[in-house]
Structure formats: structure tokens, C-alpha cells
Design a protein around this nucleic acid. Structure first.
Length: 155
DNA sequence: GCCAACGTTGGC
DNA sequence: GCCAACGTTGGC
């Protein structure tokens, strides 16, 4: 089966595409929303491609591409009392929160701003534009291709 | 820093 | 199981 496409949000001051480029791969820690968790746990497969979105920054937008390198496993930060992502309702016997690992694929020569995505007719159906707060979300093949094409254009 | 959108919690 | 109150996300 062909790989699927996703979009994942991160605040760049917490973890950016530059950080992923430096690290090579990273666990996607800290997702504490059930729908986003279910997507990671039940649907994301190794090899799927991910639009890496920078949120809570100026401008917010898509910064590059990552790839799922490890399928879902328990988010250890939820089980670590000393961690700011600790969740007392999670425990090792019944982990509440899951994550995947992603690896660096490509950093666009520019961030494609959210304001620009809103203007593109082919992208009007994007979950990103309809479900502002969902941090892990599906992207169609066409949407992925259109965004990548925009990202690879020099600013 | 404000605040709209919206997901989660908890009383009933 | 409803829904009001609350807390968080994230654009602006």
C-alpha cells in the first residue's frame, strides 16, 4: 500500500525543523489530545510522509517534510514525573499517550505561511484550515503535492 | 497579550 | 449522558 500523508504541528521554540535536521530523527513527544493520539497510534505507518508545521510563531506555516521512522509506542514523557509533559493519569501498564518517531527529509527554502495556504483553491479542504487546533492530522495526496511545490519555490 | 474556537472535566 | 465551566491552542 502506498504511504499516506500527514501534517504535524510543533512550536519551533520547542522543536523546529532545524532541530530535526540536526538530530536526524526524534520522538514526537507531548501530544495530549485523543484524536491526535489515535491518528498516531492507529493510522500512521513507517514511511508515511509528514508536513512539518511551525505553530505559534510569525508567520505560522509549513517548514518542511519529515517521515515516520518508528510506529506508535508509549510516550515516555507522560510517565516521567519530573517531565513537564507528565500525566498522572497515565501509567506503564496502561499508557494513555502514544507517539511516533519521525526522521528529517527536507527543509523548504522558505516557510509556506498559513495565510498563503488559505488562498490556494486546491487547499480549501485541508483539515488545517478547518480544525485549527488539531495537532496531528491527515493530508490528501494532492494537498501534500501542492504544499511541497509551494515550499520548494524560492521566496 | 487578547481572545475565539473548541476539547475536556465534572456535577448532576 | 447532558452540558456549563474551565483550560488550552494558536492566530493575530
Amino acid at each position: 500500500m502506498a504511504e499516506r500523508y500527514w501534517l504535524m504541528k510543533s512550536e519551533p521554540h520547542v522543536y523546529s525543523i532545524q532541530d530535526l535536521e540536526r538530530d536526524g530523527s526524534a520522538p514526537w513527544t507531548g501530544v495530549r489530545n485523543y484524536e491526535a493520539r489515535n491518528t498516531m497510534r492507529d493510522e500512521m505507518r513507517k514511511g508515511d510522509l509528514v508536513l512539518f508545521y511551525h505553530s505559534s510563531t510569525t508567520p505560522p506555516g509549513v517548514a518542511g517534510i519529515a517521515r515516520v521512522s518508528r510506529e506508535a509506542y508509549p510516550d515516555f514523557t507522560a510517565l516521567d514525573e519530573s517531565h513537564s509533559y507528565f500525566d498522572p493519569k497515565s501509567n506503564p501498564e496502561a499508557p494513555r499517550w502514544y507517539m511516533v518517531d519521525v526522521e528529517f527529509v527536507e527543509r523548504f527554502p522558505r516557510v509556506v505561511p498559513l495565510s498563503e495556504l488559505r488562498e490556494v483553491p486546491e487547499l480549501q479542504g485541508m483539515v488545517l484550515l478547518k480544525r485549527m487546533r488539531l495537532s496531528v492530522q491527515p493530508v490528501t495526496t494532492e494537498e501534500f503535492q501542492v504544499v511541497v511545490e509551494l515550499g520548494r519555490k524560492e521566496a
